[in-house]
Design a binder for these strands. Structure first.
Lengths: 364, 364
DNA sequence: GTGAATTATGGAAACGTTTCCAATAATTCC
DNA sequence: GGAATTATTGGAAACGTTTCCATAATTCAC
C-alpha cells in the first residue's frame, strides 16, 4: 500500500479537498462533514499517510520531545532511570533524545546546547555540579522546563527528584552500628565528581560522630585495577580494627568484596560490606550484597511526569527536591562485627589516621 | 547576554542585512564580504543565536537524528550498545532518539512508526524476529537506512553487525570438552524471544554432537525467583552426570551459580558455569564468571558508523552481517570436570532425556 | 421567498530555515 | 569612459504543518 512518504497535500489531492480540511479531519480539530471526513480518512489510509513531525513541530512550536542528559549508561542506575524516562515519555506521546556527558562539564554544556537547538520541550538531567552548572544556566536562560534526577541541589529553586542520600547513608550507619561495627570506612570512586558520594559520606560519618564512634575513613579509589586492593591494604595497616566498609555504589562494593578476598579477609566474617543503589546483580551474587535500594526507574519516571504536566498550560514545575523512598536491603555481605571489635571500640584514634584524607570541606 | 530564543531574522536585523546573508555566513555556504561577515558574527554572538534545528530539518529534509530501538536498557548489553551509538553519533553531529520495545513486536512497530514520523535519518535496532518483522518492513517501505545489532538475520539482505553466536557457543563447547565436561546443559531465559539464544544453543549442541558426546539439555526458565533452582534440581535428577552449565547470558549465569550453591553444589568443583556477554560484573564477583565477552559498545558504534557513511551521497549500506570478534574469558566459575565424570562419558543416554524439551526446530 | 444564522470549506500566512535567482555594487578590461 | 565581468547581496519560494479568516453552502425562522 504505502510507498514513500506522502504529505498532507497528497492526501488532500486524493480526497479532493483542501489541506486545511485534511488537517482538521486528522486532528479532529474543527468541523467537518461526515462525508468529507470519510473521504479524507480513506485517502490517508490508502497512502499510508503519517504526519511529518518536523513540520508539525515547527508550526506548533513544540517538539513533543524530551531531552535527557546523564553521565553514562554503563552505570545501571542511570540506565534504569533512562528507561523510566523513556517509558513515561512514550506513554504520553513524547520522544526522548539521549545524550551522555561522561561526567565532563564541558560536554554537559554542549549536550544541553544541542538539546536546545533541537527544541526539546523539556529536559531531565543529572549534572556534575548542580549548584554551579553552566548547563543548568543555559536551561534557565532559555526558560526550558527541566528536572534534575539523582542530584540534590542546595539552592532549592530547581525541580529535582532523588533520594535523600544523607538520610540513606545515615541509615546504613545505624544498621552497621547496631551490628557492632564501630569502626567503618567509606569507599568512593571519583569522589570529587559526584555530589551524591559527598552527601552519603556526610550522612554516614555524622551518624558515627553522633554516636561518638570514630569518624569513618574516607577512601577514594580509581577505577584502575589493583588500586582498590592497595587502598584496602593500607586501610587495614592503619586501622586494623575496621570491621565494615560502606561503598558509594554497588559495583564498587562488589569490587571490595573481591579485593577483601584477595587480601585473605572473609566477608562477612572478618569484614562486612554494604553497597548503594540496589542494582539487580546485588541479589544474584554470593554473598548477596547488602545495599540501599533506590528507585532509579521511578526517579526518571517521576521527573518526566512533572515535566509533562508542566507542559500543559497553567502547569508549573514544583520548585525544590522531591525525595523518593529508599530501602535498606540486607544481604549476606553483612554480618555482626566480630567480638574482638568490642576492644576496638573506644580505642584511641591512631595518629596514622590523620594521613587519611578526611573531607572536612563537605561537612555541613 | 542571551535571553530567549532569537532567530536568523533577528540576527539579520541587528546586523543590517538580509537573512540569506546570515545563513551564508553562519554556514560558510557562499560568498560574503569580510566586513558583513564580521557584522553578522558579532550580531549572532550578541544575541546568543543558535540555529533552530527544527526549521533546518524541515528545509534540509534531514534531521541529523538517528533512531534507536532496543528491547530494554536493563540488560547492560543493550545499555552498552546504546552508549556506543550515542557516542559515535554525537561525534558526527547526530542526535539519538531512544525507544525501547520490551521484546514486544507490536511495540517495536509502533516505535519505528514514531521514529519515522520524527524523520530520523537512519535507525539502529534490535528486533525480536529479524526474519519476519513488521518494523523492519516499515523501514524498507520508507527506504530509511537501518542497521541491525545483535540480530543475525538469515536472509542476508540486511545490514547488521553482531557476533557469530554460533561460533562463540561452539567455542564454549570446545573449551568445556577440553576440560572434560562431556555432559553439559544450556540454560536460557525467554528462549523463544531471542534469536540469539537459539543460535547459541545450536552452536553449542552441534559441537557436542560432532564430538559424539550427548547433546546438551536445553533448560528454559522464567525470571520468576526460584524457578531456576527447581529447573536445575530437575536437571540433576534426570542427568546427575551433568558437570557444566552454559547460560545464555551473564545475569542468568550468576543466577545459576547462586542456585547451584543453594542446591549444595560447589562451583566449579561440582559444576562449572559459563556465561555469555562479558558484562563488567563478571569480573567483580566471586567466583569470577567465565564468559564470552562480546563487543557491545563497538557493535553500536560500528552500526552507527555504517549508517552515517551511508548518509553521504553515493554511500550505501553494506548488505549482510558484519561479525565482530568475541573473546572467551575464563574465570573461577570454570574448572576441570571431576574425574568421576569420565564414567559419565559414553554412558547410554538416559531415556528420561526425551522429556527434556530439545528444540529440534532450530537445528540448522 | 427573503434575510439571518449556522455550518463546512479552502486560501493564505506563518513557523525558521536554505537556496535559487535576479539585482546591485565593485572591479577589470580595452 | 563605457562595456563586460565578477563579487556580494536580498527577495522569495519552498519544506509540511496549523489556523485565521473569508467565502460558499446549507439551514432556519418568519
Amino acid at each position: 500500500m504505502s510507498a514513500a512518504k506522502s504529505t498532507i497535500k497528497d492526501v488532500a489531492e486524493l480526497a479532493g479537498c483542501g489541506i486545511a480540511t485534511v488537517s482538521r479531519v486528522l486532528n479532529s480539530s474543527g468541523p467537518t462533514s461526515v462525508e468529507t471526513r470519510e473521504r479524507v480518512l480513506a485517502a490517508a489510509r490508502m497512502l499510508g499517510f503519517q504526519f511529518n513531525e518536523v513540520g508539525r513541530s515547527l508550526k506548533n512550536q513544540r517538539s513533543k520531545t524530551i531531552g535527557v542528559l546523564v553521565p553514562s549508561l554503563s552505570n545501571p542506575v542511570f540506565a534504569d532511570a533512562v528507561q523510566g524516562i523513556q517509558q513515561t515519555a512514550s506513554a504520553s506521546g513524547y520522544n526522548v533524545i539521549l545524550t551522555c556527558a561522561n561526567y565532563d562539564e564541558k560536554t554537559e554544556e554542549e549536550a544541553v546546547t544541542t538539546l536546545l537547538a533541537k527544541q526539546v520541550d523539556g529536559v531531565v538531567l543529572t549534572v556534575s555540579k548542580p549548584d554551579n552548572s553552566r548547563a543548568l544556566q543555559l536551561l534557565d536562560d532559555q526558560r526550558v522546563p527541566h528536572c534534575l534526577i539523582f542530584n540534590q541541589p542546595i539552592e532549592a529553586q530547581r525541580a529535582a527528584v532523588g533520594v535523600d542520600n544523607f538520610a540513606a547513608a545515615s541509615l546504613v550507619a545505624r544498621k552497621l552500628v547496631e551490628l557492632g561495627h564501630f569502626n567503618a570506612a567509606f569507599v568512593a570512586v571519583q569522589f570529587a565528581q559526584s555530589d551524591r558520594s559527598a552527601d552519603r559520606y556526610v550522612g554516614f560519618s555524622e551518624y558515627y560522630e553522633t554516636c561518638e564512634h570514630p569518624r569513618p575513613h574516607l577512601i577514594e579509589v580509581d577505577y584502575a585495577p589493583g588500586d582498590l586492593e592497595i587502598a584496602l591494604f593500607n586501610l587495614f595497616e592503619k586501622s586494623p580494627q575496621t570491621t565494615a566498609l560502606f561503598a558509594s555504589n554497588d559495583m564498587l562494593a562488589l569490587g571490595c568484596v573481591r579485593a577483601l578476598r584477595a587480601l585473605g579477609k572473609s566477608v562477612p566474617n572478618d569484614i562486612s560490606v554494604v553497597g548503594f543503589d540496589g542494582i539487580a546483580v546485588a541479589d544474584l551474587v554470593s554473598p548477596t550484597l547488602a545495599t540501599v535500594s533506590t528507585p532509579c526507574h521511578d526517579m526518571g519516571s517521576k521527573a518526566t511526569q512533572l515535566l509533562i504536566s508542566a507542559f500543559q498550560e497553567d502547569g508549573a514545575l514544583p520548585t525544590g527536591t522531591i525525595s523518593l523512598p529508599f530501602e535498606f536491603r540486607s544481604g549476606e555481605s553483612l554480618g555482626p562485627a566480630k567480638s574482638k571489635n568490642a576492644d576496638g571500640r573506644g580505642a584511641t584514634r591512631p595518629s596514622a589516621l590523620s594521613a587519611t584524607p578526611f573531607v572536612t570541606k563537605y561537612i555541613k
